[in-house]
Structure formats: C-alpha cells, structure tokens
Write a protein that binds this DNA or RNA. Structure first.
Lengths: 223, 223
DNA sequence: CGCCTCCTCAAGAGAACACTTGAACAGTCG
DNA sequence: CGACTGTTCAAGTGTTCTCTTGAGGAGGCG
C-alpha cells in the first residue's frame, strides 16, 4: 500500500460520521430532529437527559456536520443538515432491523404487542386523502406538527386525545401518524380510538418518510 | 415518557450498528467486502493490520450481523450480510462527503489531484459497452474480480498494468474501474495509460454501485 | 444597564475501546 | 492419526467516551 497513512485517515473520517450516530442518545436526537427543528431544552426533555449532556451530544453531531443551528431570541434551534442525514438514519434502522438479532426483542419490549394494530401504507393513505373519506391526525407533540406535517392533518398530541375525542367525527375512518415505525404515539392513539369504538389505523411509518417521498406537507401552528 | 428504559435500549440497539462502522479499520473492511467475499488473512493484508486484530474487527462486525461467514477448506470467508449493508456504507460516505468539512482535505491527501482525470458515468459506460467500442478493465486485485465484476471486463490488477500494456488494443478507448469513488487503483491506471498515449477514463464510482443498480455482472477467474 | 434565560464549557470518575502479544483452538490434509 | 494452517481468544496498556456537577458566556428584555 503506497499511502497507508492517508488511506487510514480518510477512512477514519468516514468513521467519524458513524461515531456520531454510535450512541443511543444521539440516535434519539437524530430521530426527533428528523421531524423538524427543536431547541436544546426541548430536546433534553425529549431524550430524558440533562441540558448539559444534551448540549454536549448536539455538539458532537454538529462537529461532523450532521446538524446545523440557528438562534431565535434566547433559544438555539437545531436541525438536520439535510435529507441525506435522515436517509442515513433510515438506512441504519433498516440494517439493524434486518440483521441485528436482538432488535426484535428490544422493539417488542418498547412497542408492545402490535398484532391487533392495523396499519396503512403511504400509498394507500395518499389515495384515501384524495378521496376525502379519512381523517388524518398528527399525534406528535405540537412543536413537531408546527415544524411540518402531512397536508390536511389535524394536530392532536397523544396526551390530549382522550379529552378531544368528542370533537372527532364518527362517520370517517381515522388514520394516526407520528415519527416513524418505532414511535409509539400512533400505536397508543389507535388502541385508544378502537377501544372507544372508532375505526382507526396507523400509518406504517411516519412524517419523515412522507416528506422524503415529497408528498404534500404543510407548516404552521395548529388551527 | 412512559417507558424510558425500553426506549433507550431500543435506540442503543440502533447505535450498536453505527458503532460497528465507527472505526476506520472496520470501515475499510466493509469497503473491501462490498466487492465480494474475502478470507481473514487476505483482509488483514488489505487493511494493513495484524491477523488477530483483523479477526477482532470482523467479529465486531459479525456480532451485529453486518457480515456472514462460510468455511472453505482451512479458510474462512467473510461477506457482507446483504445489499442493505453496502447501501448503508454508501449512504455514510455520501453524508461524510456532503457534511464533514475535513473530508475534502483527507480525500485530496489520499487521492491526489484529480483535475486532469476524466471520468465516465455508469449510464454512459453501459451505452458504450452496448456499442462495443470500449475496453473495460478491472484493476482491482484478482480476488475481487473473481468474486464479481462488470460483464465483459478484463482483469488487469493495477500492479500488472505496466507489464501488460502491450497486450491492450490501441484502437479503442479504455475505461478502468475499481472499488468506488475513493479508490485510487483506477486513477493510477488512467494516469499510466494516458502517459503512454492511450485514450483512457475512469468509471466515476466502482463495482458495488454497478451491482447495486442490477447492471450485468459476471463471476469467475480471469481468462 | 443589569438581570434573566438559555446554552456551552471544563474538570473528573468510571466504563468501553483499539491494538499488541502470545497462546489455544478447529478443521483439513497428508 | 498427527502435524499444520488459518483463525480466534485472553490479558494488558494506553486512549477515548459518557455523564455529572458547577461555573462561565451570549443575548434579550424590563
């Protein structure tokens, strides 16, 4: 090998990027940021860590260019650097799902039993939206809805779903969606709705996948 | 958060896969294995490490399911678990290329000046192969050619190119390819050929990308 | 201008990682 | 069956990583 040191350094560079994803808390951050930008305090609560530690992890992500920041008043908002990062995160999940044996157990421990949980694909949901015979609810936290949501979806964060049940029409099927296939919010929503006798399914994956396919989205605060 | 411990464990699971890629030597192993299966001794030479250390890294990759093994005689061959792993590796490179600032410098230090190096896309190469007015040479080590190569390509490992120059026709353009965009073999081949007055270009990327697109490939030892 | 909020930095403890060396193991082939 | 080859394992050392605590900015708002 003519130039071993330079080759090693180059591949160490690629490894730096992998290293940024090689921590569960940073992976959670990426997963949340794939929904849209958020500020540090918020992210700390989201991943259940101290603000200092969250800031530290965000710096680790920023130092290899995976996230960018902007300031708004006293707050600093972080966002993914590009769709490529979201795609890399999706690829990582896909590989883990396919090849990492323990992942099934881990997923089952977190998600619980999904056998009675009916799902709907992005394609079918798009058709149903066009037909107009479906109510799409976004059960993620409000901040994520504001940062971007499926066009026409209504924001009903999972915490407020039970209370707001009576405001939902009874004559159409309800489709709930959240962050992605490993997010429990939509699961919880569908289970709750079905217990109350509603016709409900969850979108198989979540908002980032919808956006990545360039399907119609909207931004802005809930009505 | 209802179930913080289970969620953390799940994301630690995803992070395990990233951790497997989070080392320069393991990244080199993935890059080589994306060409096709290889045995441990061979891989150790390829990445410039001891056999023991290489075996250790391969175990790290195997423990998260990224690589599989098979035995043939006294040798054990490692291969990527699936195309998804190759795709993840490609995604990682793409993100690093786009977002990691130092990568340009690292790449330049290893690859040298590419300004005078003419490239050809996969699409165009496919058309030229159909037209039959091009000679495609595979300048990777023989083991990689044997494990799989572009249909119709001739195996001329870079070490033997100068010696075998006279066996190449002078009336067609030559296209050299190797492992991918960060591989120097094809660069060296094109530079050598052009110094000798031949018309030569390199394929922009390499064999794995060609295979991923399901373009025609062949297996087997050089003629 | 000074206080306040939000975020980052620095130091430190405990755990995990990378690579080396030398020994042990597992098949295979004569 | 015994020797050999190719591979893995185990122990050890120096380095890097994670998270905590408490102090130190940066910028806005009263």
């Amino acid at each position: 090998m003519a130039n071993r040191a330079a080759k090693d350094a180059l591949f160490d560079g690629f490894a730096e990027v992998a290293k940024a994803l090689a921590n569960g808390r940073r992976a959670e951050l990426i997963d949340v940021l794939a929904q849209g930008e958020r500020h540090v305090d918020d992210l700390a609560t989201e991943i259940g860590q101290s603000v200092a530690n969250t800031s530290f992890h965000l710096r680790a992500l920023a130092s290899v260019g995976l996230v960018h920041t902007r300031r708004d008043g006293t707050r600093i908002y972080y966002r993914l650097a590009s769709d490529r990062v979201a795609a890399l995160w999706a690829g990582l999940r896909s590989v883990a799902e396919t090849h990492l044996e323990v992942l099934d157990d881990l997923a089952h421990a977190y998600l619980g039993d999904r056998s009675g949980l009916e799902q709907i694909s992005r394609d079918e949901l798009a058709r149903r939206i066009d037909a107009g015979d479906v109510l799409v609810i976004d059960v993620r936290p409000t901040a994520e809805y504001t940062a971007g949501h499926i066009a026409g979806a209504r924001s009903i964060p999972i915490d407020g779903l039970a209370r707001r049940l009576r405001t939902l029409p009874t004559d159409v099927e309800i489709v709930a969606y959240c962050r992605g296939p490993y997010c429990v919010y939509a699961d919880d929503a569908v289970r709750l709705l079905r217990r109350r006798g509603r016709q409900a399914r969850r979108l198989t994956d979540g908002f980032p996948e919808w956006r990545t396919e360039r399907r119609p989205i909207e931004h802005g605060v809930p009505a």
